[in-house]
Design a protein around this nucleic acid. Sequence first.
DNA 1: TATAGATTTGACAAAAATTGTCAATCTGAT
DNA 2: ATCAGATTGACAATTTTTGTCAAATCTATA
Lengths: 104, 104
Amino acid sequence: MSTENIGEKLRKLREENSYLLRKVAAMLDIDVAILSKMERGERRLTKEIVQKLAKIYKHDTEELLVLYLSEKVVYEIGEEDLALKALQVAEEQIKYQRKLNGKK
Amino acid sequence: MSTENIGEKLRKLREENSYLLRKVAAMLDIDVAILSKMERGERRLTKEIVQKLAKIYKHDTEELLVLYLSEKVVYEIGEEDLALKALQVAEEQIKYQRKLNGKK
DNA sequence: TATAGATTTGACAAAAATTGTCAATCTGAT
DNA sequence: ATCAGATTGACAATTTTTGTCAAATCTATA
């Protein structure tokens, strides 16, 4: 199983591409310190940054976004005893919403 | 399917118990306006308040908490195209975490 | 319709969380 | 020891969330 967090993943990708932090930070137009923290999970990523990084590293955007979103979820409710049940219900709700939106 | 939001559910429960907003707000020690907004989804609920309301209305706490947590998730990522995929990954990650925690 | 009680709404300040910026510090290689 | 790269922590700026309150709206009943 993967269960690698997105920060680690992004760091690996950066290293595979032999980019320095400051290089990538410049491309993203953010402070080096922030990117460093993002890779180490100390600061939150944003969807936009994840997308930009996928482009920069020429890596599957969808995969990174899924990782990013799932981490948000785990962060929100991962510690809760009822987390797994809640995920089931959330899934139902989202499917239901989509069915509705699809119909109108 | 249920797909009723927790605010509506709590309002129904309150009405079934014939409580006035101000009565319940007093029991919770919060402003009536806030409780009103919580029931209508304008303000966020907290876990603590959900638990207290379950007691007040003598209703299954777990059911309400699951609803509360799932709504948090839907709120966070429900609009995302990749939401369902992200939920699958989140589920795996949580299960994996628990296996680890169980072992040590 | 007039009144009273219940709820809703919106404005606003207070508090909390997130974010950006920067300089000092650490690390590893030479 | 020096240098480039990365990390850390402090701090202010900004954004988001929260609490408080009074006015407005609704609802039922005399």
